[in-house]
């Protein structure tokens, strides 16, 4: 684990977020560690329901009843976010950390124009604006136009007066990003920003995020279930499975030589034109129920390498330079793969 050096922007450790439901306690995030460095793009991948959104919702302080953060620390720029009061948290949210929601199409307020929604953020978080009066209004407008222009909305001046429904899905997604970027956050958490979009539009949005990251020097957490997106846009990747991080490391290394059996299975099961005529090898079975999980490797029931020694809580193990994986057979798996090649 890297210690809190200058380069670390966000450090989450031992995060545990649970939901109290009628059926029992759903342990959606169980002992997750995340480190985000300044200026880097971290990719977060994993099956639906693996806890990606809940993890970063917890960082943002957005977990609501019946959910609660049960344990762990969230250190942002040396400050423990869990110790902050709601007011202080609100000030950080939006100013220092911004998140675009998974469903941008419903996350915009349909009753306010796009301009008004950008203004709200600026009003709340921008201290550089003139104090009041016409100068302030003009400055806000200029910033709003600038933000829309930045995300590639044509004729942003006129578009400010329009309502969300007057934009297409891809444009709304870009507006969400514009709103998130309005206060120049240090960390942008983009929760599946392109899942609902078509490939050509998806490429536009992702390139936009990469551009802005380079220009503003911010850090980005890109949540997705598309390993291709991660491969092209993120330096590091974190793979989640059933509420835990199962593997993390530099993207290129993880993708070229996955260590955890789940990551391997995931990569092996992506249909690719290059594999035409060959069989793909899907991971059999299904994700376990997150209620009352027994103390065992969470991938146990689907894992081709599973054995009796997997029936205990498994900790993250070093798995190469700057890499970790949650599997007792990390070495074993690595050698096996070499044997196969």
């Amino acid at each position: 684990m890297m210690q809190n050096d200058e380069n670390t922007l966000l450090e989450v450790s031992g995060l545990r977020t649970v939901f109290d439901t009628r059926a029992g306690v759903v342990c959606a995030v169980d002992g997750v560690d995340v480190t985000v460095r300044r200026g880097e793009c971290l990719g977060v991948v994993g099956e639906s329901g693996s806890g990606k959104s809940v993890t970063f919702g917890s960082v943002m302080g957005l977990v609501r009843a019946p959910g609660r953060i049960d344990a762990g620390s969230i250190i942002f720029e040396g400050q423990d976010l869990r110790a902050l009061g709601p007011g202080q948290m609100r000030a950080i949210r939006g100013r220092d950390i911004a998140m675009t929601m998974q469903d941008a199409l419903t996350a915009l307020n349909p009753a306010l124009t796009v301009g008004e929604q950008i203004r709200e953020v600026l009003e709340a978080h921008d201290e550089e604006l003139p104090a009041r009066g016409a100068a302030r209004r003009r400055a806000i407008r200029e910033r709003a136009v600038e933000m829309l222009g930045l995300v590639g909305i044509p004729s942003p001046g006129e578009r400010l007066r329009q309502y969300p429904h007057e934009f297409s899905g891809g444009m709304r997604q870009r507006i969400m990003i514009a709103i998130a970027l309005a206060s120049r956050p240090k960390l942008l958490i983009a929760d599946e920003p392109t899942t609902a979009l078509d490939v050509t539009i998806q490429a536009q949005v992702l390139e936009l995020i990469s551009d802005i990251r380079a220009r503003l020097g911010m850090s980005v957490v890109l949540i997705t279930h598309d390993l291709g997106v991660v491969a092209e846009h993120c330096e590091r990747v974190m793979v989640m499975y059933a509420g835990q991080v199962v593997e993390q490391g530099p993207t290129r290394d993880v993708i070229s030589a996955p260590q955890h059996p789940y990551t391997k299975g995931l990569l092996a099961s992506i249909p690719r034109p290059a594999l035409r005529g060959e069989r793909i090898h899907p991971i059999q079975g299904q994700v376990p129920d997150l209620i009352d999980l027994p103390p065992q490797c969470r991938f146990y029931s689907r894992c081709p390498l599973a054995g009796p020694d997997c029936l205990k809580n498994i900790a993250m193990q070093p798995a190469g330079p700057r890499r970790m994986a949650r599997c007792i057979r990390v070495e074993n798996a690595a050698t096996r793969q070499e044997a196969e090649v």
Partner: peptide, 16 residues
């Protein structure tokens, strides 16, 4: 526009 997993080199991009 398709993001490629086995990206050795980044592909040429046509920006629409």
């Amino acid at each position: 526009a398709v993001p490629e997993v086995d990206a050795g080199v980044r592909k040429a991009r046509v920006r629409l």
